[in-house]
Amino acid sequence: MVPLSYYLVLSGFLFACGVTGFLIKRNIITIFMSIELMLNGVNLSFVAFAAHWHSLAGQVFVFFVMVVAAAEAAVGLAIIIAVYRTRETLNVDQVNLLKL
């Protein structure tokens, strides 16, 4: 038996890692991976709560989160490729204008 709070602490730590990576990283792709890390942390708390409350709805939500993550990764990486094609850099400090 593992207390529910242990799972929530692990989930919260992964989410905090994701937020920090989102803030301190300067490479667009790494920033994107930090978002995936945040989504993974949330998924863990969904599954833990599903087991705790004996409701499978939490596990179904995980699938929807995964679908949103997949869609976001596909569109986001396409945007990154488009940005790289016009600016030839992936550093967000140099991508500070919406226009070319």
Partner: peptide, 28 residues
């Protein structure tokens, strides 16, 4: 990040009661 993690851990471990999750509690 460290402060936020420690705060979350402290709140969770202190106020979440004694709920425990058994292995394979909910067969998905």
């Amino acid at each position: 990040m460290l402060v936020a993690s420690l705060l979350v851990a402290w709140v969770m471990l202190r106020h979440s009661g004694t709920g425990a999750v058994a292995a394979g509690a909910l067969p998905g």
